[in-house]
Amino acid sequence: MVAAAFVAACEAELDAPKPGNVHHFAPGHGMAARDFIASARAAAPHIAAPGASVGARILGAVEATWDAVGQNTNLGIILLCAPLAHAALGAGGDDLARETARVLAGLDVADAQAAFAAIMRANPAGLGAAPEHDVSGTAQTTLLEAMRAAAPRDRIGWQYAHGFEDIFGLGRDALQDARRRGHDAARATLDVYLTFLAAFPDSHIARKYGLDLAQAVQQEAAREAERIRFAPRDEAFAIALAFDRALKDRRVNPGTSADLTVAVLFADSVQPILASAHKNG
């Protein structure tokens, strides 16, 4: 069920016209929706592998993705979803946020080494060298501590350092608000994505092009999100696709915002599984 929830979250994210990112409405950055579907299906058994460590889930999923599509389509998604899956599979309670915090606190050096190997394998754009806990070297600390060191420059590292606060707070709130307003799944996904893109500079943009551009895109996203918020569905999608073309013309991909969106959808799918398992004993 966790593997199926992972694939479903990855596929659902592609149904929304996420500006600057890949989706069913338009390819981008040398990738198409089919690459992400193939990646999700290849990675899912490793994300949900019984008894695996978080690090093993990450490395196995990245290696399977490369065998399937030969490029980095989902490193951020994997880094976010592996701890969530681990929490769900080994949960002692029905609160996914609390269980995820427990998993993060238990990460060790072996998890860090596996994650370092996965990141080197994926070789994301703008990776460069880090002043502390560089992934090209041997891990000297836990994965949690390595992510805490990366947190000031990377929003995925920030999630590890702050108990996945954006997933269980900002993102979940946006999803629930969209549902209260009667939005369908694709429109709700777009709302979550734009919430992240407007809330803080996208790490992927900042890593590749610098903080100034990431902040400029954040400001653009805030304006477009305001236009989209109360627009009818077709109009909202038209505004989003115009923004999508503008970003892709500049070769700008808010990849971290998309990764966070998948994690929100995955957590949302896994939480009821957790609650049902504990309710039924």
Rank of each mutant, 00 (worst) to 15 (best):
Ala5Lys: 03
Phe6Gln: 00
Ala12Gly: 04
Ala12Glu: 12
Ala12Ser: 04
Ala16Gln: 01
Ala16Met: 02
Ala16Tyr: 00
Pro19Cys: 00
Pro19Ser: 01
His23Ala: 09
His29Ile: 07
Ala38Pro: 09
Ala44Leu: 07
His46Leu: 04
Ser53Pro: 02
Val54Leu: 13
Ala56Phe: 08
Gly60Met: 12
Gly60Thr: 14
Ala61Lys: 03
Val62Tyr: 00
Glu63Val: 13
Glu63Met: 07
Glu63Cys: 12
Thr65Tyr: 00
Trp66Arg: 11
Asp67Arg: 14
Gly70Glu: 04
Gln71Pro: 13
Thr73Phe: 02
Ile77Met: 05
Ile77Asn: 08
Ile78His: 07
Ile78Arg: 10
Leu80Ala: 06
Leu80Lys: 05
Cys81Pro: 02
Ala82Ile: 15
Pro83Val: 10
Pro83Thr: 12
His86Leu: 15
Ala87Trp: 11
Gly90Trp: 06
Gly92Lys: 13
Asp94Ser: 14
Leu96Ala: 01
Ala97Phe: 14
Ala105Phe: 14
Asp108Tyr: 01
Phe116Cys: 11
Ala117Met: 05
Ile119Met: 04
Arg121Met: 03
Ala122Asn: 07
Asn123Asp: 11
Gly128Leu: 05
Ala130Gln: 05
Ala130Ser: 04
Pro131Gly: 05
His133Glu: 15
Gln140Lys: 15
Leu143Trp: 00
Leu143Gln: 00
Leu143Pro: 00
Glu145Arg: 00
Glu145Lys: 03
Glu145Met: 02
Glu145Tyr: 01
Met147Gln: 03
Arg148Phe: 11
Arg153Lys: 05
Ile156Asp: 00
Ile156Phe: 05
Phe164Ser: 02
Gly171Val: 03
Gly171Gln: 01
Gln176Gly: 08
Gln176Pro: 05
Asp177Pro: 06
Arg179Cys: 10
Arg179Gly: 06
Leu190Val: 10
Leu197Cys: 05
Pro201Leu: 00
Asp202Cys: 01
His204Cys: 15
Ile205Leu: 04
Ile205Trp: 11
Arg207Trp: 02
Tyr209Trp: 09
Tyr209Thr: 09
Leu211Asn: 14
Gln215Asn: 04
Gln219Arg: 09
Arg223Ala: 09
Ala225His: 10
Glu226Asn: 12
Arg227Gly: 11
Arg227Phe: 15
Ala231Ile: 09
Ala236Asp: 01
Ala242Cys: 10
Phe243Gln: 03
Phe243Cys: 04
Arg245Glu: 07
Leu247Met: 11
Lys248Thr: 09
Lys248Leu: 05
Asp249Lys: 12
Arg251Lys: 07
Arg251Ala: 10
Asn253His: 12
Pro254Phe: 01
Thr261Pro: 08
Ala263Gln: 01
Leu265Val: 09
Phe266Pro: 08
Pro272Ala: 13
Ile273Ser: 13
Ser276Tyr: 09
His278Ser: 06
Asn280Lys: 09
Asn280Ile: 08
Gly281Ile: 10
